[in-house]
Design a protein around this nucleic acid. Sequence first.
DNA 1: GGAGTAAGATAGTCAACCTATCTAATGGAG
DNA 2: CTCCATTAGATAGGTTGACTATCTTACTCC
Lengths: 212, 212
Amino acid sequence: MAERRRGAALEKALLDAAWEELSAQGYARFTMDAVVKRAGTSPSVLYRRWSDRDELAQATIAHRLRELILDIPDTGSLREDVLTLMREINATRAELIPTMFAQLAAHYQATGTRPSDLTDPTATGRKEATDVIFDRAVERGEVNPEHLTERIKSLPFDLLRHEILATFAPAADRTLQEIVDTIFLPLVTPGPGVIFARPHGGWTGAMRPAGP
Amino acid sequence: MAERRRGAALEKALLDAAWEELSAQGYARFTMDAVVKRAGTSPSVLYRRWSDRDELAQATIAHRLRELILDIPDTGSLREDVLTLMREINATRAELIPTMFAQLAAHYQATGTRPSDLTDPTATGRKEATDVIFDRAVERGEVNPEHLTERIKSLPFDLLRHEILATFAPAADRTLQEIVDTIFLPLVTPGPGVIFARPHGGWTGAMRPAGP
DNA sequence: GGAGTAAGATAGTCAACCTATCTAATGGAG
DNA sequence: CTCCATTAGATAGGTTGACTATCTTACTCC
């Protein structure tokens, strides 16, 4: 083994190997030994960076989230923007979300706290991304801004996340349309309703602005 | 130790001890040894009944679910019926749901299947229970039955479950009201909407008919 | 009152976490 | 170009917990 990896390249190789183990074996069967073997390295190299299995799992998920940044769609209609985003989440994160949840649950039950890098909607950029979509819809006069409470803005994504967690699989496209057409849009497009306001975080992941 | 437990009494003691471990330590730190010690028994007694840790965890959760059968409320209004049921779920199952999910995820990732006794809505009676509430609301003329798709009937309970899973804690009562008043009721009480039909299971648990 | 059944004790194997200690490749300083 | 600090990578071992095997002893049922 003449070529010896170092620094960022090594770290990426370790996290990629860890993700392959995590997605193939599931959180419960995720072992340090298997990651060591798959990455072709030694225990000390792993433990120098992450002090235990929990930390490695968390870093692996965070790394994966960073690789799965989504584009913010701009299709000209709220329905298509929301559906497009849901389809992207459905396609890219259906595998990640249950693993992420298992990690959150394990970490929470062990420590009483949740790893902030996996949940902070500001850090992950989710809230800002969907707000861009909703702001455009308001500008176009498609929706009444008074209907857009935090809970309703996150509603289609909450329901998608719930669906993925309940089935451990991507949702059918018909399901996404059903959520948007029979639940979300009827709530934001017609007459008045009782308005509440409350901060409401999410943990579906980060997004970046759409290109030119 | 002159008194030696047997049969159903022993089994209940084992499952109770297992539940105390499961809720105290969390799924990831749930160990057979600790259950053996807490129940004051021996490994063979456990392994005679459940062949591994996964099976014991599953049986423990199913046992707990059986102990937490909910009454079906009958308050005279759909809003109060749904809110009452959500409050009961929130109060009794907020601790159980994340553990249950961790077990489902572990079992699914290990085997590719999900333990049917934890998910089958017919076996757990959940679907029938909520249908009673909705049937009464239709009889009273409170809602248009055409609005009551399977997804919309389960909507408030799905959102509550999502909230519990996202926070690992019971939802605030204000949150329950927000879900019912700003999302659920506006969808089932006013004008028309696109109608879909699709079976949609749940796994919040079993209920029994309300008493006289 | 005796026999079969199952509770409970004890000891051991194996896998996986994590630590300690060592060797050697690599990049940078001079 | 050479030396040195850093850290990749190898190996071996302590510890915990899953699961098995074997044995003794209480309890139940006939």
